[in-house]
Design a binder for these strands. Sequence first.
DNA 1: AGCCTTTGACCAGCG
DNA 2: TCGCTGGTCAAAGGC
Length: 230
Amino acid sequence: MRYYIYEKNMLMLWIMSGIKIFLQASFEMSHQQALAQVTAQAVHSQYNMINHADYTISFSSTTTPALVTAQHANFSGNLTSAQEKPALPSHTGNSNIESNEVSQGLKTSAPTFDKPADDGYNWRKYGQKAVKGGEYPRSYYKCTHTSCAVKKKVERSAEGHITQIIYRGQHNHQRPPKRRSKDGGGQLNEADDFHENEDTSTRSEPGSQDHSGKHEGSNDGIPGPSVSRR
DNA sequence: AGCCTTTGACCAGCG
DNA sequence: TCGCTGGTCAAAGGC
């Protein structure tokens, strides 16, 4: 029960953090853009902690700042199940981290609409499809890291606003060192600095844990992340 | 030169 | 079996 409350607090913290960042950023970018950045960043860190193989981030343009759902496992269930994970990183530090990361992202990523919710990893787009209904395209991205099979699908509205991000699989590596100076160098710098700190302190358990053994193994068990057929 | 995006084609699952 | 749909491949071109 205690952990449950703790998790809810964390949820509130990163949502609030997102709102804060959004308010700061709203002068420079649209509502949806800001939400996309904020929620994707925040949820991704949540994801790292909770150890998920597949989840969805939805962006709603209505009342709530961010709506988080999960695929193949419901996220709320995980919030509660995460109570079994004893050691979680300090949430206060984490929310600060999110703020840094996101604010940097807002500065640099606003023009690059093709890289929504840049989470510090490198993605290569390998496909795009107009999903049923044809109202918006869905883009497919792969993690460019060798031997990392993480993929994500990004859905956009007709105006190009991000409506949903679906991650598949989990990274078996840390965030790459800074690169891509053209569209996000500054942001990645910040993110990397942050992650180096996190690596030495908080990331040890939840971060490494999921990836290594348990995760790769569990990934195999999960029907979602499928290997390429060819 | 290397990496990325675009885009048409291909393939598998499903009804 | 056929058509639809989602996911992926790979060539071409751009940066």
